[in-house]
């Protein structure tokens, strides 16, 4: 794979107040691509889903660490890797099914569906007892007349 043009990373605790922090951080990093408002919103929405999964599912009974790595590639692709060291997912294919959730009544089971429909690529790697890594990729359109 080609080397990233730019890279940043943050680590935060799995507290729900950090959902907004993670969204804003990703949006801020993505701003250098000169994305449209729609593109920024898609990125924020997908990040929100990935980070919420860590908070709700990875650490159900405790507070743990979540890392988010942001990388920018030369073809205007943004890659966001959200990683936790929590309980992991036994059956990733099942977890990705629409409406499937192990959460309470405040969860819709649509998190992965939203990530998939808003991103160009969603990869999930998980090992029970070890944690989960979700990789989101989104190519941002090059705007005519946009400076770099």
């Amino acid at each position: 794979m080609t080397k990233p043009v730019n890279e940043a990373a943050v680590v935060f605790l799995s507290r729900s107040a950090n959902e907004g922090f993670a969204r804003a951080t990703a949006a801020c990093f993505a701003a250098q691509l000169d994305p449209t408002l729609d593109e920024v919103n898609d990125i924020k929405t997908a990040v929100s889903e990935a980070v919420t999964n860590c908070i709700v599912h990875a650490y159900p009974d405790c507070i743990g660490k979540v890392s988010m790595r942001l990388r920018l590639f030369g073809d205007n692709t943004l890659e966001i890797v959200v990683k936790d060291w929590g309980v992991g997912i036994e059956d990733v294919a099942q977890a990705r099914q629409p409406l499937y959730t192990t959460g309470d009544e405040t969860r819709s089971g649509m998190g992965f569906t939203i990530m998939e429909s808003f991103m160009d690529g969603v990869k999930v790697r998980s090992a029970p007892g070890k944690g989960t890594t979700v990789t989101l990729r989104r190519r941002v359109s090059l705007r005519v007349g946009g400076g770099a």
Partner: peptide, 11 residues
């Protein structure tokens, strides 16, 4: 802002 949590609220 709304994510899938809003879906659960509406449903």
């Amino acid at each position: 802002f709304m994510d899938s949590s809003g879906i659960a609220v509406i449903l």
